[in-house]
Amino acid sequence: MIATVQAVSDVQILDMEQIELREVNATLQRAPSTNYTQFEILNTRGSHAIAVGLDAEIEVIVKGSTGYYCAGMNQRATVHVTGSVGPGVAENMMSGTVIVDGDASQYAGATAHGGLLVIKGNASSRCGISMKGIDIVVHGNIGHMSAFMAQKGNLVVLGDAGDALGDSLYEARLFVRGSVKSLGADCIEKEMRAEHLDILADLLARAGADAKPQDFKRYGSARKLYHFNVDHADAY
């Protein structure tokens, strides 16, 4: 709409010392019906549920660190956190981009269906748990039980992975450059084929990660848990 052009460059400031969380999120959720496309959230002080339920092509910069579920269920928006995030960042994201300059606590990108989550620091345990199509790129390390029951999508880790990586994995692809402390049940190392190198190269580029695809190993599901076999019963 031509009428919105004049306001496009304006950044709306949402200062959490001045306004409540409800007003912050309501403003962002109303964005499609306003002229604003850029927002900055200040004084977050580790608050929960910041910038959740967005559904517009807007850009939100969160200055500081957040608590649980930052950018939860995001659709289309770009959310950039300059600090660290608490548990469940971008949980159940559908589309859009979430970038975290610092570290992420447990459950980063849990159950998310789409979009790109970039963590510049480390992610702790259960990164990508039950992921259903999201792409996650972690520049640092990830903690234990990451990609537990991961169904779809790609998890890229430039650093090391903790215990039980990819336990009970379905069809998600895991790419790790560093060491893996241990693999979970039914997760195995797999051959890196040309198609995987292409996927990885694209994800690394989109995540601003300086790494070579051929330095990574690929892990995936052995698919032995897909159909019950009494001789594998101890893996359950």
Binding site: A26, Q29, H48, A49, V52, G53, M73, G88, S130, F148
Partner: peptide, 22 residues
């Protein structure tokens, strides 16, 4: 997958309410 126990659940409920405008 992303919360355990009532103290976490309280925060999960906050998120769900924020997504659906209370």
């Amino acid at each position: 997958p992303d919360w355990t126990g009532p103290d976490d659940l309280e925060i999960k409920i906050l998120e769900l309410r924020e997504i659906t405008s209370w």
